[in-house]
Structures are given as C-alpha cells and as structure tokens.
C-alpha cells in the first residue's frame, strides 16, 4: 500500500496529538484543571470544519465558473465531512461545558437551556443548520445539472452570509465562551507556549484527516457515477 506523504504526516500528527495531548504538561488553571486538554480536540474540530466548508465553497465557485460536475461532487463531499466535524465539535464542546459551565447543584441537562444560548454555539448551530438545508435542497432536485447549479449558488450565498455573522455576532452579545475580543487560541498571548506546540500540529492533523475522508468519498462517488453511466 502506497500512501501520499501528507497521509503519513496526518497519522504522525494525530498520534502526537493523542499521546502528547494527554501526557504533556499543561498550565494549571483553577477553573479548567485538566479539562484544558480538550482544547487540542474541541477547538481543532471547529478549525477543521471551517477549513473544509471553505474548501466546499471554493469548489462551488469553481463549479459555477467551469460547469464541471466533478467540482460539484467535491463541494458536496467537503460539506459532508465539514458537518461531521461540526457535530464532533459540538460533542466535545458539550463534554467540556458539562465540567466547566454546568451548574454543579443541578443535573447537567438542567443547564442545557442556558448553555445553548451562547453566541458561539448559536453560530455553530447556524452553520450546521444551513449545511443540512443545503443537503435538503440538493435532494429536492432530480436533474443533476440543475441540482449542481442551484446548490452551488446556495452554498456561496449561505457561506457569505454565515461566516461574517459567526465572527461578528459573538462579539456583540455577552458570552461565557473565551475569545470575546478575537479568535480564541489563535492569538499568541492567550495560549501557553507548551500548549501551542501541541495545538497547531493538531489543527493541521485533523484538517488533513478531514481532507483524507473527503477524498475517499469523492473517489467512491466518482466510481458510482461511472457505474451508473456504464
């Protein structure tokens, strides 16, 4: 089995992320304690999601300028994997919030209503809902050519509407979530040097894993399309 170099890189980085993320020393903060290690997984999910959704939009734009159906397949698969990472980001965030934000006097689910109001969570929910709507829109059109064109238009429109609001709205509303003044963990001052050495490779690793999954799915669907044509 021969794999391209970036697939080996992906495996090495993720192995480092899992081992180093759990074992390397982290700063001791009274609120977070050891849960701070979730930064290596939770925040990476969101980064990888945004990068993959951006890839999806780029392919939609390229579809509109070239009308080449392979770009449409790519746009769809990158969006699928992006949504998967978004849901994982929700799951890891929920675990984190259960230890840090939830009211310890009540069962964790009793805090659900107040936690979901978080602007950052609203932004993430909007992205996931918009892309689920993208898939519903795709399925509502039987003709492949029209489906590709109309869904590419929606993809570009949704992306252009969503992403400014994901960055803008949280800065206008009060929030418990870190990163009120900028992008959490990207800023050099608010993340410890020891953590940076794990965090940045982890972002690259998870993004590469997403691209890997998407590329397999793209190949499967191109084989399926050939089978239909044959």
């Amino acid at each position: 089995m021969r794999l391209s170099w970036w697939k080996y890189l992906c495996m090495i980085l993720l192995a480092y992320d899992v081992v180093g993320g759990l074992l390397l020393p982290v700063p001791e903060l009274p609120q977070l304690q050891e849960t701070i290690r979730n930064l290596y997984y939770h925040v990476c999910m969101w980064f990888a999601m945004m990068i993959l959704l951006t890839a999806s939009v780029v392919h939609s734009i390229r579809y509109l300028s070239s009308l080449d159906p392979s770009h449409d397949t790519r746009a769809r698969e990158y969006a699928t994997v992006g949504i998967l990472l978004g849901l994982l980001g929700y799951a890891t965030g929920a675990i984190w919030a259960a230890y840090t934000w939830a009211d310890p006097n009540n069962p964790a689910y009793a805090s659900f209503g107040s936690i979901v109001r978080e602007p950052k969570l609203i932004g993430a929910a909007m992205a996931i809902l918009a892309y689920l709507a993208y898939f519903v829109l795709r399925d509502s059109m039987p003709e492949p050519e029209r489906r590709a064109r109309v869904s590419a238009v929606y993809n570009v429109f949704a992306y252009a509407m969503l992403f400014p609001s994901i960055w803008i709205v949280p800065r206008l509303l009060p929030s418990l979530h870190p990163g009120q003044e900028g992008n959490p963990a990207l800023n050099f001052n608010d993340i410890d040097a020891r953590m940076r050495s794990v965090f940045y490779p982890a972002v690259i690793g998870w993004t590469l894993l997403g691209v890997w999954i998407a590329s397999l799915r793209i190949r499967i669907s191109s084989i399926e399309e050939k089978k239909i044509e044959a």
Binding site: G123, M126, L129, A130, Y154, A158, M161, S165, I168, V169
Partner: peptide, 14 residues
C-alpha cells in the same frame, strides 16, 4: 423556510 432560518438568525438577533 428551511433555507432561510439559519441565514436570517444573526440579523434577527442583532
């Protein structure tokens, strides 16, 4: 409605 709700939400919040 499905397409619109997530996109209009930030404006409504503002």
């Amino acid at each position: 409605a499905i397409l619109g709700f997530p996109l209009i939400l930030p404006q409504l919040l503002l």
